[in-house]
Each structure stands twice: as C-alpha cells, then as structure tokens.
Design a protein around this nucleic acid. Structure first.
Lengths: 214, 214
DNA sequence: ACCTGAACACCGTTCAAGT
DNA sequence: ACCTGAACACCGTTCAAGT
C-alpha cells in the first residue's frame, strides 16, 4: 500500500489557490466565502477553520502572490534596480488583474508590501536620497504602478480608456480635441511614467538625468 | 399665503448631500441604499425614483463634489497651474476622505474626472509635451494624488503608516532600520512627490528643473 | 410621478451540533 | 481538530400595489 497523503482535503494553501483563480477569472469583487466554498466543494463555514475572516483570507492571497516574486534584481545601477522592481510588480498585476483591488481592501495589504519597499529603498539610498525621501519616492512609485495597473484592469469594463468615444461631448474643449491613438498603449504609458519618476528622483538627488537617444 | 416650496420632499440633490455626509462620516464602505434611505426618512425603493442604481448614485455624489471645484487657477506658469490643480484635488480628498474610494468604484468615476484633465493638459502643452505625453503625465499625476490621499485616509484605521511599530519584525532589515519620524507627514510627502513629478516633466520636455534654494 | 411593502437572491459571520 | 446546517443581520434590486 502506498502511504496515503494528508487526510485533510482542505488546507489554507488550497483555499488561497482557489480564491486566486476565482479573483483572476471573475474579478476581485466576485469572490465571496460562499462562492469560494462551492468552488472547493465545501460548506462556507469550513473556511473559518483556516482563516479567521474574509479579510484575513484576502490578505493571505495577496501575500501568496507577492512573496513568490523577487523584486531585487541585483542590479548595480539604482535606476535598473528600481525599474526591475516596479516592472516586476506591474507584471504581477497584469497576470493577476485582481491584485491592485485586493491591495486596496482595508487591511488586506499584507506585510509583503514591504518587499518591494526593501529593494527600492536600497536603490534610492544609493541614488543619494535620505531615508525620508526614499520612503516618499517609494510611495510615489507604488501608487503610480498600482493605479496604472488598476486603471488598465478596469478599462475594458468601465470604458475609462481615454479613447475617442469616451471623451466625446465631455464639455472640455481641450480634452476633446486631443489627438490620441484609438487604443491606449498602457505599456508605453507605464514606461513613460517610470522614466519620468526616475528623472525626477535624479533631480532630487542632484544627479544628471539619464542620457537620451536622438 | 406664501407660495409653498416644491411638494416633493425627496430630490436627487437631497439624496446626494445625505449620501456624501454618510460617506464622509463613516467611510465609503458604510453606505447602503437602506442606510441612506433611513437617513433621509424614506423607504429604500424611493431612491430608485431618482437614481437607476447605487452605482449611478455614487457617480452623482463624486460628480457633485468634483464639479464644484475649479481646477484651473489661471496661472501663467505651467508648474503653478499643475500644482494648483492637484493641490485642489488633494484638498477635496482631505475634506471628503471617502472620495478616492468612490472614484475607484467601477463606473463611479464620472465625466468630471475630465475636469482636472483639462487644466493639466493645457499646462503640459505649454510645458512642451505633445498630446500623448500630456495624457500620460496626467494619469501619473492623478494616480499619485488619489493614491496618496487614499493611503492617508486609510492609515489611521489600517495601521499602514510607515511608523516604527508597523515596520518592526517585518523581516526586511533595511526597511526596519529606516530612520523615520514617529508620525508620517503626508503633506510634506505629497509636496515632495509633486515637485519630483514636475521636475520629471521638465526633463521630458527638455526644460531645466526648477531653481532650488540653498 | 412618486412612494410603499413584500419578496428574491444574495452577503459575512455566530452558534450549536456532529465526527 | 475539522466540518455541517440553521440562523441572524445585513445587502441591491424586482415587482406589484397604492396615491
């Protein structure tokens, strides 16, 4: 006889994975204790043997996703380090479109939000910022990255894309007359913002901005 | 006999004002059709005579707050213009702490989010950015402003402030050893970020950064 | 046109049992 | 230790009446 696996068919890990799949597939708003329970074939109250509350469960889901990622790319240049960190975070958000909304839930932002902070603060110190300015720049970077990702995740449903038909008849003449491409390039928009912030950090740290081609 | 006022004691405006007061006092998560109805002394279903859905109501609340604000300060310098615009938006968020959360609700971000866009795009054109980069910079600015305000509104409840006790034992040595003041100065953090972004825009536009004292 | 009351299909969570 | 089932106090919204 092969030794049987763990008798318990339910576990925190199994719940986390099922919750993440539910969130990725139907959005962060679609998850409920009852739907998650049904998805793993169990009674809603069974979940409470593994998590004290829905909030705790969501925090664990966020932590599971974030702690599986390395934000420190081991780059020498502080710009490369910061770039790597927030491109990794953005990649995470694109693969798990519910993640930004998850981190906005009160108390669901877990200790793991300090992981990208660690990598960033190291880099910004190297750039010449002091402790307080490093944390300030970190909040700017993470706010920018998460809001862009949340916006992108919402865009297809909420029709918030700055495309032609959303701006038509909005009573703001300059906004209406903007010449924008028919579909918004979120990748380019993120790259633009990240470079802009890095240039701003360089100015704060009295370093020259990055060399530009052309 | 003085002419009587409108016979109708319920109106969209009355509902909007009551909803805003409820949101300001108990947070955006505390509002429900039933609680709002009770607050104005009416049956929940009476609201549906004035708004098609809860989402429509929340959008109207956000619109009411935002459209009462002038984001264009009429400044000549593009930096002053952008500063004015986002300081006004931030002031709005501080007076109505539920506003950032409100704008994150799917579809509740109303046409009025284009009001700060108008003032910003005008200024950024003047700075020398093209249409696409102006919109990109606008998204950066509004994402930064709203995320900072949301973070600040959440901080007292969610204990997310980067103060000593929240970072203790978080397994990230550099983060733990940061020398930060015991209470976080959100105003200074916002000012830092705004200046940093303006400097970054200046670099993008190939303009010299702002002159610094000292 | 505007408001009510009952009802439907949901929530998160507590509590008392079962094994 | 772990799971169930019933129940409580909520949701947003539909529907049929009332005026």
């Amino acid at each position: 006889m092969a030794p049987v696996g763990p008798r318990r068919e339910l576990s925190p890990e199994k719940l986390i994975v099922a919750a993440l799949r539910l969130i990725d597939r139907e959005g962060a708003g679609a998850i409920s204790m009852r739907r998650l329970a049904a998805a793993v074939g169990v009674t809603p109250m069974a979940i409470y043997n593994h998590f004290a509350s829905k909030r705790d469960l969501l925090a664990a889901v966020a932590d599971h996703v974030i702690s599986a990622t390395r934000f420190d790319g081991g780059h020498d240049d502080w710009r490369d380090q910061v770039r790597h960190c927030f491109e990794a975070l953005r990649g995470l958000c694109l693969r798990h479109p519910g993640l930004p909304a998850l981190l906005e839930v009160d108390g669901a932002a877990p200790a793991s939000v300090f992981a990208p902070m660690e990598a960033t603060v190291q880099a910004l110190r190297q750039a010449g910022l002091d402790d307080v300015d490093s944390v300030r720049a970190y909040f700017l970077l993470i706010g920018f990255t998460l809001s862009q990702a949340a916006y992108q995740a919402r865009a297809p449903i909420a029709a918030l894309e700055p495309s032609e038909q959303n701006r038509a008849g909005c009573d703001y003449p300059d906004t209406e007359q903007l010449e924008l491409p028919p579909s918004w390039d979120f990748d380019a928009s993120f790259a633009f913002g990240l470079t802009l912030i890095l240039d701003g950090i360089a100015v704060s740290a009295r370093q020259p901005p990055e060399q530009k081609a052309g």
